[in-house]
Every structure is written in C-alpha cells, then in structure tokens.
C-alpha cells in the first residue's frame, strides 16, 4: 500500500494534535499567562483570560462550524503528486510524508458537505500544520471541487483560509491553482450562489490573492494576519519597521477589505444569519 492511500484516522481523535502544547498547563501566546490546557481545548483555542485566538486544526474548525455528525468528508483521497521531482534540502515527498504524519491528514485541506445550523453547505478548511497550509495542485483541486459541488447542488460555499500561500515545491502548477479556484468562483457567482470567505491567522500570498479575497462576504477572526506580502518581506523592501497592527484583521477592516471581524465562537451564528440574508425564505 502506497503512502498516499493511507487510511485516515477519524477526525475527532486528531483534533488539537500538537497545536497546543501537551501537558496540563500551557502558556497563552497572547497574554503569556499560564492556562489550563483542557480549558483551551474546550474553548476552541481561545484564551479564557485575554481572548487570544490560538490557531486550531482544520478538524477542530469543522467541529466548530458544522452541526454534530452531519459532516461528510469528500475527496479525502486527493493527494499531492510530485510532478517536478522537487528537492531542496529535503525531498518534497519526504516533506509531504512528515506533514501527513504530523497532521494525520492526506492533504492541507479538509473538504466536504454538512449542515451549518441546519443549513446545507459545502465547506473546505485549510490546515496550517500541513506544510504551512500551502496550496499545491491537490489543495487547489479539493477547493475547486468544493466550489463545483456548490454549483451542482445549488448550495452555499464556505472556505476557511489559513495558509502561507502557494506551495513552492510544485512550481508554476501551484500558482495556477490561484486561477483555477478563482475561475470556479466565477461560475458560482454566475449561478448567484453565495460564497463566504472566512480568514483565520494567517492568510498570505497566493491564497489571499485568489479565493480568500473573493467572498461575497469576507469574515476575519480577530487579530489574524492577512496579507499579500508578509511583514518581513515588506520591512526588508522599505527598510523600516512596520506600524503595530499592520496587516491585521482590524487593519483590513479599516481599509475596506473585510466585511467584519468576528470572534471565533460567534462565527457559526454569524454565517447562519448571513446565509439567511442571502437565500433564506422571505415572508412577505
């Protein structure tokens, strides 16, 4: 059996794996206070003291947004090939292997159908722990298929981005995934079906510059870094340090590039309400 046909572990068991340090106590990345680990897990990664939103896994995110036991995963067997036989200090295949081991996922995105507050949706959630949530051919394909299922089933599409951008190890093929996903959204828009883009820390590069910025409504979690070029690259270009809060969710809200900044625990109800605005029954 090849590595790419490996049977996946069920979603629940891998939730939070490695994301929040093992042990009973851990340190909040926001206020640096010591918090009880289980408490952080219970609250979907939100610090009970300062409300800092820690990064959570794709499967945890699905548990947050999709009604219990209604999620049906699709295209779990779509995985990366290595068309360029790419090798830097390590082989791309080895990097893929360790990402799969680390996350228990076959690729950097989980996609499928489910109910959100009893509303049928197609959803894809990116997994940052899988090679920085980078988008290669397989991620692009799964996201495109999610959008296409929305078109076919006349359902709203929700994409949750969390990514460092295009996956360098697939060269221009990964760049083209930007065009592929955006083109699919063009078809969805023609069918007048809603697309909600949810941004979680961080979203950058080729993912920001494609589907993440194309939502009918774009929602970001508080303090998420959302950028085209990363702060380090920009600081290098202009040779200065950047102002506090630059490229954070609130900065984008101020500049008109996201519709709203919504705390994690309110995301589900916000999305449900939006879906009703888009396509709920209207009583005259």
């Amino acid at each position: 059996m090849g590595w790419f046909t490996k049977v996946k572990k069920p979603l629940e068991s891998i939730a939070f794996k490695k994301r929040i340090p093992e042990g009973v106590w851990c340190k909040c990345k926001g206020c640096k206070e010591i918090i009880y680990h289980n408490e952080l897990v219970e609250s979907f990664g939100i610090c009970p003291k300062c409300s800092h939103h820690h990064r959570i896994s794709a499967s945890e995110r699905i548990r947050l947004l999709i009604d219990d036991a209604t999620f049906e995963e699709k295209d779990a067997n779509v995985t990366s090939a290595d068309p360029l036989k790419f090798r830097d200090t390590k082989k791309y295949k080895e990097r893929l292997g360790s990402a799969q081991k680390k996350t228990g996922l076959s690729e950097g995105v989980i996609s499928g159908s489910g109910l959100l507050e009893s509303r049928q949706v197609e959803i894809a959630v990116m997994e940052f722990d899988f090679m920085g949530g980078s988008m290669g051919s397989a991620v692009g394909e799964k996201i495109t298929r999610t959008i296409e299922r929305g078109v076919e089933g006349e359902k709203p599409v929700i994409l949750v981005s969390c990514s460092g951008g295009a996956r360098m190890q697939e060269g221009l093929l990964s760049l083209m995934q930007m065009a592929k996903t955006s083109a699919a959204l063009g078809v969805l828009a023609e069918k007048k079906l809603p697309y909600l883009s949810i941004l979680s820390d961080p979203v950058s590069g080729g993912v920001t510059a494609s589907f993440a910025m194309l939502g009918d409504v774009i929602i970001s979690e508080p303090n998420a870094l959302i950028c085209f070029a990363g702060p380090r690259v920009i600081a290098q270009t202009i040779g200065e340090t950047l102002p506090e809060g630059f490229q954070r969710a609130e900065f984008l809200l101020d500049h008109g590039f996201v519709d709203m900044v919504v705390p994690r625990l309110q995301l589900k109800l916000t999305v449900a309400q939006l879906l009703d605005f888009f396509c709920g029954e209207v009583a005259y």
């Binding site: 779509v78 995985t79 990366s80 090939a81 290669g136 394909e141 697939e170 083209m176 995934q177």
Partner: peptide, 13 residues
C-alpha cells in the same frame, strides 16, 4: 478557457 484552467494541476486520486 475555463476548462483549460480547470485542468491545471497534478495530483493522485
């Protein structure tokens, strides 16, 4: 054109 873009990418399934 859409088909052309759609088919870009190599992956296993």
């Amino acid at each position: 054109r859409r088909n052309k873009i759609r088919n870009m990418g190599y992956f296993y399934e």
